[in-house]
Design a protein around this nucleic acid. Structure first.
Lengths: 357, 357
DNA sequence: ACCGTCTGTGTAATCGTTTACAGTAGGATG
DNA sequence: CATCCTACTGTAAACGATTACACAGACGGT
């Protein structure tokens, strides 16, 4: 019995949810009045209000959201579209969206596109069909046409770039100062060759922006920057450390090897650090190391890892609040303040080998 | 213009979504036939099928899920209730739920209770009202009464413990062998005093189970185990490392100090490691270290950190598939195979100080 | 020719809310 | 006393899909 039913819940008792009509009957009023009281729209006498609430409580009444949505054309749901739920950077994002939406009564539907165009299309179809009132995207859609579809479906959308633009900046601009600061720091320590390491074949939009900024800053400072793409799937059995080690060793060994390794993400960083450790390359003595993204592990690591990081969560909060305001869920203009990313220098960045002494 | 509108989407063009009536008109059929074709229920001629699909495609028609739910009493949404979205362990969980639900056409509504009874109640109310077809819980509800409410609302529910029970085991049992193995390993290395470190005032259910298992195993092996609760909020400005360092130092200094520190979670581990490093306590020379939960950072760390870990994602997949099967979304009984947790010994666990030598 | 079956289709009722509209009652005002 | 508000309440028509039911035509067997 227990073995054949892994769930609790259905099948027991009366099960049927109470109806607005039952509430009305119990309160001795019409459904219209009940609805007016419960939605807060329209007038109602103190007496009616009391009786409706009493009846609703007694019957454990919860209004049927489908019926309500159908009638009002508002679902009280927003969607959040994430390119890759396996990537922990999106957890703060998701959390921020949920925490902004929840107090206003909005439910959050999460959709992972798994970096696939096909799934992205499916997910958007589903979200539109579900009638979400708005959509927060953690990144631009892979297919530009999708934005038009959403717009035709009447779904307000926001994504970080759109939002940053509205706030008078851009995602790339937010990170420029921090990257430049890091580069100046590296230059001042005598570094002349840098490797920017990314995962996967092609650079995503945000990564490409960062790489562009790094290139620019390095050019100005006389640092030779090169881009290394590692094919690593962190979910594989061997987390790629072996592969990475081989490739990194090949990268570091030669005489003209980079004296700085800059990891593009927190997913990559531990793999690179392990590879460096395995290859016996000491940080920062032989090679300095820094990464985009911060984590308690970065400070815990010995040496502590320098990072360029922003707060994706606060961006997501601001985005969501702005979206909800647009939906009329809230009056006040939220305090939109996008803080630029910061460079946090820790001991993983040190003087270039052979410098200063 | 652009500055006053952070979103794209609404307000442009015709906006109105197509109706089943419009599709019917365009296809020269009745709405009944259109519905039959699109849902796949009921007969339809090849010709009708062709015309309906053509019309639907031309009009970019997506059925209104609210109307459909209202009529059929199935929302094609499942909920996932998470006790704390800030905790990264729930990301694989969430991801697994989403990836199991998505291919079957189910949308996933995510609700974070933030470890608060009040929010838990609100979230469950919302989920019930939204009419979710089922609910996956990442942990037992804080208020036991909530389960009954869900059951009265007719929402099938599953949580890891219920599910493990159904699979013929229990969450606690899944981890027993690994914990015992770790304890035997510690004992064989001469360890006699162990500290199990947790975060927050009270032990959560799962943590309490693990602590109980550790206590039992240690008793049998002649290890004295004690429990240390640290009040650390990882989201605070000072991530608690300072506080942890003080407290840990006090813990380690005395003559009868533990020679093993066992961290209850991956959230805690880096903070403890940092504290140990700051206090100059060498691992594993002075003190061995292990933690529940695995992460690329655990292998990247020097020394690599020993772990007792399971795969919450696969549990979540199995739970979701089982739930969906229960909802009639799929025929086949999923291959429910709950693999027990494993102990992975790495260099952070070494001989007790003063042993062997 | 008749009956039964089988396919394919249309009509219309239904799901549970919200809300436009039309009252009703009671009090204030002319 | 007639009139006009105000304040509240009820009736009934939507919203967009699904589906029970009825029916039309085709076909085959007697």
């Amino acid at each position: 019995m227990a073995r054949s039913n892994p769930c609790a819940g259905a099948g027991a008792g009366p099960a049927a949810r109470a109806d607005i009509r039952q509430v009305a009957a119990r309160a001795g009023l019409s459904t219209a009045t009940v609805s007016r009281v419960l939605t807060g729209r329209g007038p109602a006498s103190a007496d009616a209000i009391r009786r409706v609430h009493a009846a609703a409580r007694e019957l454990d009444y919860l209004p049927n959201a489908s019926a309500s949505s159908l009638r009002t054309d508002r679902s009280m749901m927003i969607g959040v579209l994430v390119p890759d739920l396996a990537n922990p950077v999106f957890l703060p994002f998701l959390r921020a969206v949920e925490h902004s939406a929840q107090p206003l009564g909005y439910a959050v539907v999460v959709a992972d596109t798994q970096n696939s165009e096909r799934i992205e299309r499916q997910q958007l179809d589903r979200l539109i069909a579900q009638g979400i009132d708005g959509l927060v995207m953690a990144g631009r859609p892979r297919q530009p046409g999708q934005t038009r579809r959403l717009s035709r479906a009447g779904v307000p959308v926001t994504d970080p770039e759109l939002f940053a633009e509205h706030a008078g900046t851009s995602i790339r601009a937010m990170t420029v100062a921090a990257i430049e600061e890091a580069c100046r720091h590296l230059a001042s320590l005598g570094h002349r060759r840098l490797a920017f390491v990314t995962r996967g074949a092609a650079l995503q939009r945000a990564s490409a922006g960062r790489w562009g900024t790094i290139q620019g800053a390095c050019r100005d400072l006389g640092i030779e920057a090169r881009h290394v793409a590692l094919m690593i799937r962190p979910d594989a059995d061997d987390p790629g450390a072996g592969l990475a080690a081989t490739k990194l060793a090949a990268l570091i060994r030669p005489a003209d090897s980079p004296s700085v390794i800059w990891s593009n993400s927190l997913v990559l960083a531990p793999l690179l650090l392990e590879a460096l450790a395995v290859a016996g390359i000491e940080i920062p003595a032989r090679c300095s190391f820094l990464t985009f993204g911060d984590s308690p592990w970065a400070t815990a690591y010995r040496p502590p890892i320098s990072v360029v990081s922003g707060d994706l969560g606060s961006v997501a909060s601001a985005m969501t609040e702005s979206l909800l305001r647009r939906l009329g869920a809230v009056e006040a203009e939220p305090a939109v303040e996008l803080r630029p990313d910061t460079y946090v220098a820790r001991s993983s960045v040190g003087p270039a080998p052979g410098t200063g002494r």
